[in-house]
């Protein structure tokens, strides 16, 4: 039987780090890279849930190159030790950490607002900063930060989340600018609506909603080319372009 068994893909010897390895997008990204023969390191706070995804990916692709690493995105002091624990520095890094939170609650509960801001902005920005320094020292690599269209303009319905994603987008922009003379690329991905557990139960418009697998394929495609800021569904670039262009006296009166 052994001679019949073919692994699905030939190992490339390359390695991806997914920060947020228990999220639906993180799982899909890891799976898409593993299908192309990449080794994958899944970083997550809940190691047991990450292990479940790691076993799934290993089983599907007949590989044993999927590892799990604990990370607490709010424990910024632990980041250097976390990077050391990865062993070899990864070739590519995708950060999908995010917390939607509850906007009305965040307005009256500073602790909740702080958790949203730190989870979406402070943690991911500082971790990618630390990783970017190591990639720059090595001389190459790809950093993909999954931000959000919600960061393109603050809206009443989710501005705590939106502002933290705006901060993250600006951070990625600055990092990209700083590293533009090196072979370390920094790409910002804005998925729009995605069918995940974060949006479960929401009534999402089909034409503007992507599957996690589609987001993953788009991110995998960033390995080549020179994209900087990517909207997974191009309709979102147009929509957010219009929303950004609205003069503030009009915009502030809209129910968005």
């Amino acid at each position: 039987m052994t001679n019949l068994h073919k692994p699905k893909s030939i190992s490339t010897g390359k390695r991806l780090l997914v920060i947020g390895g228990t999220s639906d997008i993180g799982r899909a990204v890891a799976d898409a890279y593993a299908a192309k023969g990449w080794g994958v390191a899944l970083a997550a706070r809940d190691v047991e849930r990450a292990r479940r995804n790691a076993d799934d990916i290993q089983t599907r692709h007949g590989t044993d190159h999927v590892s799990v690493h604990p990370i607490d995105i709010l424990d910024t002091a632990s980041f250097d030790a976390f990077i050391d624990s990865l062993g070899a520095l990864p070739d590519s890094i995708v950060c999908v950490v995010g917390m939607l939170g509850d906007q009305p609650r965040a307005q009256g509960d500073p602790d909740h607002a702080t958790a949203i801001i730190r989870t979406n902005f402070e943690g991911p920005a500082l971790l990618l900063e630390a990783l970017a320094g190591r990639l720059a020292a090595r001389g190459d690599g790809l950093i993909v930060g999954v931000s959000s269209v919600a960061g393109d303009r603050g809206r009443a319905s989710n501005y705590v989340y939106g502002a933290s994603k705006a901060g993250f987008s600006a951070y990625l922009s600055g990092l990209r600018n700083r590293l533009s003379q090196t072979d370390v690329r920094v790409v910002t991905v804005k998925p729009g609506f995605v069918r995940t557990s974060m949006t479960e139960g929401m009534d999402l418009p089909g034409a503007l909603t992507a599957a996690p697998e589609a987001v993953a394929q788009r991110i995998l495609g960033l390995q080549t080319g020179n994209a900087n800021v990517v909207y997974v569904l191009s309709a979102w670039r147009l929509i957010m372009g219009i929303i950004r262009a609205l003069p503030e006296p009009i915009f502030k009166r809209l129910k968005l």
Binding site: M1, T2, H5, K8, R52, D55, D56, T59, R60, G62
Partner: peptide, 27 residues
């Protein structure tokens, strides 16, 4: 919908109960 392990010698596949046959054949 997670798969758990596969033994190519015995052909034994372990999965969670919600994994689809479609998914199994595709893999």
């Amino acid at each position: 919908n997670r798969m758990q392990s596969f033994n190519p010698e015995t052909g034994l596949l372990a999965t969670e109960a919600g994994v689809s046959l479609d998914d199994i054949i595709a893999c």
